[in-house]
Design a protein around this nucleic acid. Structure first.
Lengths: 217, 217
DNA sequence: GACAGATAGATAGCGGCGCTATCTGCTATC
DNA sequence: GATAGCAGATAGCGCCGCTATCTATCTGTC
């Protein structure tokens, strides 16, 4: 498979593929001559993965490079790859050193210990959670912590579903990749579902769209 | 309150505040002279909201402007504002016209009717969901739809928690703003919780961190 | 073996975004 | 009156994800 066919097969322009090659997102093709290379199905698969992480997952090219590098590491430390993937999903870190942050930190620590979660404060997800809760507190929504356990229940449910899916559906060789896909794209899936459910719940509570679901827009 | 104080109170640089004013994210201050203005607590609150939507929610400045414009509309059509907010959360739209998209579309339609959700296909969230599921299918994870109901259960739970929180905690005047905050920042909260729960579930299933949660990184 | 078309690799540039820097009058405060 | 700050305007910057262009080479077809 030459680069043009790869381009046609995936819908990604040739210059863009070359760009991904330069950035190390895509391993180089096998050289058949000093300036000719062929690409296999692995490249096609990888290219689709890149586009999914970019377009659907909203990840940055540099972050995708890190994750894929970890993914290709022959000595795959599972949790390192997952860490590399998960760490890229959070928002940009913004330092705050105020009472809200301190309070949020405590809330998170409480939550983690209350639920017996096996993690530690240095987990970037914990930092993200703290940041988000602190931001809410600053906006006058410190009381949001009251629904945190509902959120956590739902998160546990989703996490169990994810792990169960990966455990029973996926061949070992693609397991890590699957977890990355599940983590990143699963987030997009849940986000959309949450917004759909939001509309429905809002309709039920306030009747903004009428009880029979008729379309008012 | 002058612009310098506003800057000090929020940690946002003065030129950045001016930029937000230019972009219409922040209403202009009250002019006391042709070139002097004062800002009130509403400005401070709004500024914090902007930073939260930007930094934690990952929204774009132009999208924030749209949402805030809808928010300030005296004739607040609740669902319009929510739509404006929710519509900005999805990933960039990428057109695909293939079998995966068609299949995903059907899956989403099934899901919506199965759960009796009061929404319709034109809901951007439905489009986002279709996009995400189609991307998964293209990556060989069409079977992910098997866990879709688990996801939907969790999403309903979160949506109920959101609505309940807003309904009982928030004064009417700030209700719409609260829903925006809950929708956008709640997404960040859930994302972090999901990743935390992921680590825990993974530890339980594979023991990557040992049963006592010791740190291996 | 000539020739059109694709290719590898390199370099430069582009468009969007979120600011940031700078300048010109003016104003508040001491 | 000196100093600091301010409003409003314009220009530029740094990052990011490509995109355009060029050279030298290779492939496939007649």
């Amino acid at each position: 498979m030459r680069i043009g066919e790869l381009s046609r097969a995936t819908g990604v322009p040739v210059p863009t593929i070359k760009y991904y090659l330069r950035e190390g997102l895509l391993p180089p093709g096998e050289l058949t001559s000093p300036n000719q290379a062929t690409y296999g199905e692995a490249h096609e698969r990888r290219l689709r993965l890149i586009r999914a992480l970019l377009d659907v997952g909203g990840m940055k090219v540099a972050d995708i490079a890190d994750v894929l590098t970890a993914l290709d590491d022959p000595v795959r430390p599972l949790h390192k790859v997952l860490g590399a993937a998960a760490d890229r999903l959070g928002a940009a870190r913004v330092e705050h050193d105020d009472t809200e942050s301190a309070a949020a930190q405590e809330v998170v620590a409480d939550l983690v210990s209350r639920r017996g979660w096996r993690t530690h404060d240095s987990d970037p997800a914990a930092t993200d959670l703290t940041t988000a809760l602190a931001a809410m507190a600053r906006l006058g929504h410190g009381a949001f912590v009251e629904v945190l356990d509902d959120y956590a229940d739902a998160a546990e449910r989703v996490a169990r579903a994810d792990l169960g899916y990966v455990d029973r559906r996926v061949s070992v060789e693609h397991m890590v990749e699957s977890v990355v896909i599940g983590t990143v794209l699963g987030e997009a899936v849940f986000s959309a579902l949450r917004r759909l459910a939001h509309v429905d719940a809002s309709a039920k509570l306030y009747g903004t769209e009428g009880p029979q679901g008729r379309k008012t827009s």
